[in-house]
Design a protein around this nucleic acid. Structure first.
Length: 581
RNA sequence: GGUCCGGUAGUUCAGUUUGGUUAGAAUACAUGCCUGUCACGCAUGGGGUCGCGAGUUCGAGCCUCGUCCGGACCGCCA
């Protein structure tokens, strides 16, 4: 009858424990047989401790460990001994266990890849055996990091009076926003639940209920295609407050971010700069600019549209960026940049360059159309100096901004301006309330349909919907949107007007969101909030380029779990029971 | 829905440019030697449906077409 499995973990023994009798449990990381001596590295989540076996002193034990292999689970009892030759690389490197007794708790097959920091396993294989992958330090540390971040957030939010409240996962489907995951109802055939894309309406109802500071670290679900930073189920830090202005919210969560960076990374971040959506688009061509480097857009319509160059003359926008010190780019490099913007993913038809040469002359790909004076005017407007390279694109405003944004980021990469370990946070504010969609010929909510128009724009909601701005904001870190929120509508009539602007009939609005508008009739306080992408926050804080590394059991590119091999069919009986057959 | 890249030993990859004898390396695994290793070392050995299917050819890992799987991206993600 076993009374105790272990007295210590594999990460805690050191010189102070010498001569103590200890019992350890763990996995065999590595066996090194040197003839008379055998060493086993025993691993658990806390570290590695070396076990030593001497054939002369203890031949029976050495015989017993003969068949042992990697990843077997064993329990050993022995004496902590100072090492003959110490290992400075690990915390337990001063000691080893002189084993007296050993017991196999479980054998293991040879794992399909090495359980080491630099594993030989590929992504797919590691996902298929994720439980083995999770034994590796890098992945384990990522999950530990996630845990730490979660604790930090909960501590901070608790300290400033936020209450964590759970909201349901089985809710109703709504047409707005992302595609819903749906769950068939067994009790009412032909009817469905949906999994929440976010707890949006529930947190608003909690405001009506008087929980004026709510938060929740919560799973959300969206049935859309995946990316390295997008999973069908992901985690949000969802927050909402009552009786607050946008200013209150930005300040409150700037405090949270400041705390996180200090607590988790030991970094004191600068006060977070703010930029309007309009300026973000104008200067960076993106609503989530990487502000670690400047390289702002300069509009060049007025200095480049007076000559005979059709491409510019017919363009809605002619816009350039300055790449400092790149005037020495070779023809090959310039062609490389042109190829970059011509890739289907960027989709530009071309790229114009102006080299500001050291001797004061300008050389461009449009010398046929523009003289030195013209090009000097361009350089002046861009603030380019001798030695700089100006890159210019032209076309429809939105498309061109997007394309130049891609080029700007690419140049940032090439010039090493997007440094890992450097963090630039940015509030993007004053988002438009609505966005026109050509395909369906209607307005969509840019943020979501519960976002309030700016009070000064309320009057033109019906007449000029496209010009209405909202007190909506995103928090952007190094070019990644890690959170967003808004001041919400808390008035039934305003909410009705909003649904109307989105093309809902009154019946549709009532059927889908009647519960919310009803609630607004019972003293809904003014409120607003924000939600952070928890997985993204983890990956950004660790300079990782994928959120998968921070999720214990993520889905692959096709939304499959290759370990469980799901999604998978269900039985005829189940289908029948759910009324799907 | 689209574009691009990849699929060869348990694993990570080379080999495909220019089709040609028995498809290699590293690592992992097994066996032997080795008393201070900690990326131990040395020696030996086993291990291959070259993703799958069709086609071209005297001959296909290599060329063509299709298909499946994986990855990155565009569309999509209020």
């Amino acid at each position: 009858m076993k009374t105790m499995y272990r007295t210590h973990t594999c990460g805690e023994l050191n010189g102070q424990h010498v001569n103590e009798k200890v019992t350890l449990c763990g996995w065999i990381q590595k066996i090194r047989k040197l003839g008379g001596m055998t060493f086993i590295d025993l691993r658990d989540r806390y570290g590695i401790t070396q076990l030593a076996f001497n054939a002369e002193q203890n031949p029976d034990l050495c015989k017993q460990i003969e068949p042992f292999g990697r990843e077997w689970v064993i329990q050993v009892t022995g004496i902590v001994t100072e090492r003959y030759s110490k290992n400075k690389n690990i915390p337990t490197g001063d000691i080893e266990i002189l084993v007296e007794e050993i017991q196999v708790l479980n054998e293991s097959l040879t794992p399909p890849f090495t359980i080491e920091d630099e594993s030989d396993g590929g992504d797919e294989l590691r996902m298929k055996y994720r439980y083995l992958d999770l034994r590796r330090n890098p992945v384990k540390n990522n999950l530990m990091f996630r845990h730490k971040l979660g604790i930090a957030i909960r501590n901070y939010m608790n300290n400033i009076g936020f209450v964590e409240i759970e909201t349901p996962f089985l809710i109703g489907s709504t047409p707005e926003g992302a595609r819903d995951f749906v769950v068939p109802s067994r009790l009412t055939h032909g009817e469905f639940y949906a999994l929440p894309q976010s707890p949006q309406t529930f947190k608003q109802l909690l405001m009506v209920a008087g929980f004026d500071r709510y938060f929740q670290i919560v799973k959300c679900f969206r049935d859309e295609d995946l990316r390295s930073d997008r999973q069908p189920e992901f985690t949000q830090v969802d927050c909402e407050m009552s009786f607050v202005t946008q200013e209150d919210i930005l300040n409150t969560f700037e405090g949270l971010l400041k705390y996180i960076f200090k607590e988790i990374k030991g970094i004191d971040i600068e006060p977070i700069e703010r930029i309007t959506y309009a300026d973000a688009m104008r200067f960076y061509g993106s609503d989530k600019p990487d502000a670690r480097f400047d390289m702002r857009f300069v509009e060049l319509n007025d200095v480049l549209k007076h000559r005979d160059f059709k491409v510019f003359n017919e363009a809605e926008l002619v816009v350039g960026i300055v790449a400092k010190g790149c005037a020495n780019y070779t023809r090959k490099q310039l062609d490389g940049l042109t190829d970059f913007v011509k890739r289907p993913q960027v989709g530009a038809s071309g790229l114009v360059y102006v080299l500001c040469q050291e001797d004061g002359h300008f050389k461009s790909s449009v010398d046929k159309f523009y003289n030195q004076e013209d090009l000097r005017a361009v350089a002046e407007k861009c603030g380019a100096q001798a030695g700089d390279l100006i890159l210019i694109m032209a076309g429809k405003t939105e498309k061109t901004q997007k394309q130049l944004c891609e080029l700007r980021l690419e140049m940032g990469n090439r010039l090493g301006l997007r440094k890992a370990g450097e963090y630039k946070l940015l509030w993007v504010i004053d988002f438009p309330l609505l966005e026109w969609d050509e395909e369906t010929q209607r307005y969509y909510a840019k943020h979501h349909p519960f976002t309030a128009p700016k009070p000064e724009h309320e009057a033109i909601l019906e007449t000029e919907p496209g010009k209405v701005n909202a007190n909506a904001y995103d928090i952007v870190i190094n070019g990644t949107e890690v959170g967003g929120g808004s001041i919400r509508i808390h008035d039934k009539n305003m909410q009705k007007r909003m649904f109307k602007a989105l093309g809902f009939t009154e019946e549709e609005a009532q059927r889908q969101f009647g519960f919310l508008m009803n609630a607004f009739q019972y003293g809904a306080p003014p409120h607003g909030g924000i939600a952070f992408g928890f997985d993204r926050l983890c990956s950004i804080l660790c300079d990782a380029d994928t959120i998968r590394d921070f999720i214990a059991f993520p889905k692959n590119n096709s939304a499959r779990d290759v370990m469980l091999n799901i999604p998978s069919p269900i039985s005829e009986a189940q289908l029948k029971e759910l009324g799907l057959k």
